[in-house]
Computed example of a mutant assay.
Amino acid sequence: MPSFDIVSEIDEVEVRNAVEQTNKEVGTRYDFKGSDARVEQADKVLTAFADSDFQLDQVKDVLVNKLTKRGVDIRCLDEGKVEKVSGNKVKQALTVKTGIEGDLAKRIVRVVKDSKLKVQAAIQGDAVRITGAKRDTLQETIALVKKSVDDFPLQYQNFRD
């Protein structure tokens, strides 16, 4: 039976490259001269440091620009709260979300079942597997999920006949 998987993955190499480019640009910009503005990456957590809230927003704008240019969907970024470090310095954690969380997976399964298409949806870890009898039905399901879930980046992989 034909099937495919709905997943949410981010290219970690592109994220690392975007962080390096952000640090390079922040280091050369005149408005950051003499400041401690930078972005650090620890696994899937990006931490933005700056001297003030305004500079923190500027660093995040540069990071978002670089991520977008590298093809990373910025809807996967989950912003933490802004914390004071020492003196006027601030930092903010940006978590890169990968995988489909339980609530979103249940929502996708509910959308597929409510559509009355002749397919089965099953949650498998951090992915959702869709199985159906016809390829056309699976393509209709992809279109339906793309239309109904637009707040999180999804990819459709392992399309098998």
Rank of each mutant, 00 (worst) to 15 (best):
M1S: 12
P2M: 05
P2L: 07
S3L: 04
F4H: 02
F4A: 03
D5A: 10
V7I: 13
V7D: 02
S8Y: 06
D11V: 09
E12D: 13
E14W: 07
E14S: 14
E20T: 13
Q21W: 11
T22A: 05
N23V: 08
K24D: 13
K24I: 08
V26K: 05
G27R: 12
R29E: 09
Y30H: 12
F32T: 08
F32G: 03
K33D: 12
G34L: 04
S35N: 09
A37T: 15
E40Q: 14
E40N: 12
T47V: 15
T47M: 09
A48S: 11
A48Y: 03
D53G: 13
Q58W: 04
D61L: 06
V62Q: 11
V64N: 05
N65C: 06
K66I: 03
K69D: 14
R70H: 14
D73R: 10
L77V: 06
G80F: 05
K81G: 07
V82M: 09
K84Q: 13
V85G: 04
S86M: 11
G87L: 10
Q92K: 14
Q92T: 10
K97A: 00
K97N: 06
T98Q: 15
I100M: 00
I100A: 00
G102D: 14
A105I: 03
K106S: 15
K106D: 15
I108F: 07
V109S: 09
V109Q: 09
R110V: 02
S115C: 01
K116E: 12
K116A: 07
V119W: 03
Q120I: 11
Q124P: 01
Q124G: 00
V128K: 00
I130C: 01
A133T: 13
D136M: 08
L138V: 09
T141Y: 00
T141Q: 02
A143P: 00
V145H: 05
K146W: 04
D150H: 12
D151P: 04
L154P: 04
Q157V: 12
Q157Y: 05
F159S: 07
R160S: 15
